[in-house]
Design a protein around this nucleic acid. Structure first.
Lengths: 131, 131
DNA sequence: ATTATACTCTAATAAAACAGTAGAGTATCG
DNA sequence: CGATACTCTACTGTTTTATTAGAGTATAAT
């Protein structure tokens, strides 16, 4: 049930970026240094977050990344879904990445796993990068 | 945040075994067939559960596996910890597999991840294989 | 005893996911 | 123009996951 490094790095970077909200773009290398994240790896992570509209970027001198919307509009869940996949322990109980399985009716796991996914989602959707 | 096949198979096998509690041992191949689990893989899983005292087994004709204690004494969490590792998303917030990290004090993730681990543990520790 | 049954144990392996790296390319600022 | 900083594709190494192979051991029934 563990969070990938990618997800962990993404959250840490988001916290940095939330701190700098409305203060202009932040360089990748600045975040990488501060949080001890391999720079090249972080590049890819931030690109992913940009692709889904969580971040925006500007190039050239003075460029960097910044939040594309208010910190309070972005949840931990949003970031984790993008960088580490669905919150649900099984795809059959995933809300946004649902895949249904033939034994769903008789499956003794479904209900509990549903509860787990809801418990996790509740915590991670409530937690935003600002208020 | 997903559950491994190993964990999923273990839970399904446990449900079968709970159903047969006090009705004598159940063969691996019987469980494997019923639940669609590769037999050789299931062998290893059940051995792991035996090693920690959740299951016991008997060999020879008429042998098989059975619960080592009452179903109501065994939680989903117990089984998942053995077969898929800690419930916590990060080791620094794991209760039974804790590893502390140097940036623990200033880490913006710890509190939320702590909440996630507790939410998951609450659901999975409450859920037993019988009542 | 012998045979069939069923678990036991070590090792090997194939595939996927994870974590990270390389390097050339493109936009922007001064 | 030249420095800066993101962009994009592809590649690589490591670890984990999911499985399989096969020889071995204990037990029950005949």
């Amino acid at each position: 049930m563990k969070l990938s490094k990618k997800g962990e790095y993404a959250l840490k970077a988001m916290i940095e970026l939330a701190r700098a909200y409305k203060k202009g773009p932040v360089r990748i290398s600045s975040i990488a240094e501060k949080e001890g994240i391999p720079k090249k790896f972080l590049e890819r992570i931030l690109m992913d977050l940009k692709k889904v509209g969580i971040l925006k970027s500007s190039r050239g001198a003075g460029g960097g990344y910044e939040l594309a919307k208010a910190p309070k509009e972005i949840s931990f869940a949003d970031v984790i879904r993008v960088t580490s996949g669905p919150l649900a322990p099984l795809r059959c109980v995933s809300k946004y990445a649902h895949i249904n399985c033939p034994h769903e009716k008789s499956c003794g796991l479904k209900k509990v796993m549903q509860d787990v996914r809801n418990a996790v989602a509740t915590v991670l959707e409530r937690e935003k990068f600002g208020k």
